[in-house]
Amino acid sequence: MSLKLFLLGIGITALSALVVWLAVLFTVDPGQATHFEFILFYLSLFIWLTGSICLGGFYLRLLKSNNEFYYGNLLISLRQACLASLYVTVTLALRGLRLIALPEAILLFVATLLFEMYFLAKK
């Protein structure tokens, strides 16, 4: 699979997930939503955030490296996007359930940073 095809796939997936997320956002009443609708909401949020951040991160790196199309950048972007989206989604979900407050959210953020540092340091 070529890099461009891969990027296109990520873009389409992110866009589809965004459509699903908006549909859930505007059609489902959270007060009466089922478990499935909640899962759909957070899953679609995670997917479209991951896709968007991944593409954003990748093209930023591209810009920074003078348009050098480097495959390794995509993997790093994808990993960072996954971590960031996971953080956002998990924090929102836990906050939605009133299980965490700001201090815990900050701790989770630090944990996410540490995981990223683990990957960066691991080489």
Binding site: L107, A111, L114, F115, M117, Y118, A121, K122
Partner: peptide, 15 residues
Amino acid sequence: SKLSKLFLALGLILV
């Protein structure tokens, strides 16, 4: 790079 495990451990502890 020798601190990678430490980062992972601290991250897991926080989680």
